[in-house]
Design a binder for these strands. Structure first.
Lengths: 97, 97
DNA sequence: TAGATAATTAAGCGAATGTCTAAATTAAAA
DNA sequence: TTTTAATTTAGACATTCGCTTAATTATCTA
């Protein structure tokens, strides 16, 4: 729990997550998106992985990262308490009688 | 944005939010829930207020705090990208005819 | 007006965080 | 096998964070 909130607390890590919405990317491709050293990005990837917000797949010399549902589900559950409290708008449908 | 993620990063602040689901409480009532000095809680409340996750209402000598929809909506919007990506189950709706 | 109560602001300190460069590991290519 | 490339691990350092105690502000009440 703590690990997940810590993971999404950093703006760079949130950007990495956004970037991975486009699909799986290897560490180098991710690093190239940022004006930051590769070791720093590597460290961010590690924290995201620990939080189970991303998954790592070794592909030969490369490591491919992708979003991991596991961690997001936990955050989603946490958030539900509050969305219920405020009754956030549910999707609207039109009914024909 | 940064402010909100920072706010929910701390476990004490998340507990405060959970506590406020029971309804508005003043600073003293909130502080009494934690084994921590009042100034520390006051500081946490300040950060939550800055993040617009809670609202403060001065009631004479007391200050009453309650959950603020504003900040939660922003987090909700951020999260939507990922819940869409994973196609999280949508809330059930009630149909009125 | 004094004194007591609720709460915040201020100052200080150790621990955690994010960044960097340099070194190590692992796998592909020459 | 030697070299090159992808990535991580290690070590160092400045900044931020969360906590405490002491002081301050604001409000109520006797």
């Amino acid at each position: 729990m703590d690990t997940k909130f810590k993971a999404i607390n950093d703006p760079t890590r949130r950007e990495i997550l956004q970037f991975l919405v486009n699909g799986p990317q290897n560490a180098g491709q991710i690093a190239s998106q940022f004006d930051m050293s590769k070791p720093s990005i590597s460290h961010h990837l590690d924290l995201l992985k620990q939080a189970k917000l991303i998954q790592a797949d070794k592909k030969g010399q490369f490591i491919e990262y992708k979003l991991d549902k596991t961690g997001f589900e936990v955050i989603h559950t946490w958030f539900k308490t509050f969305s219920t409290y405020f009754e956030f708008p549910k999707p609207k449908i039109r009914i024909e009688i």
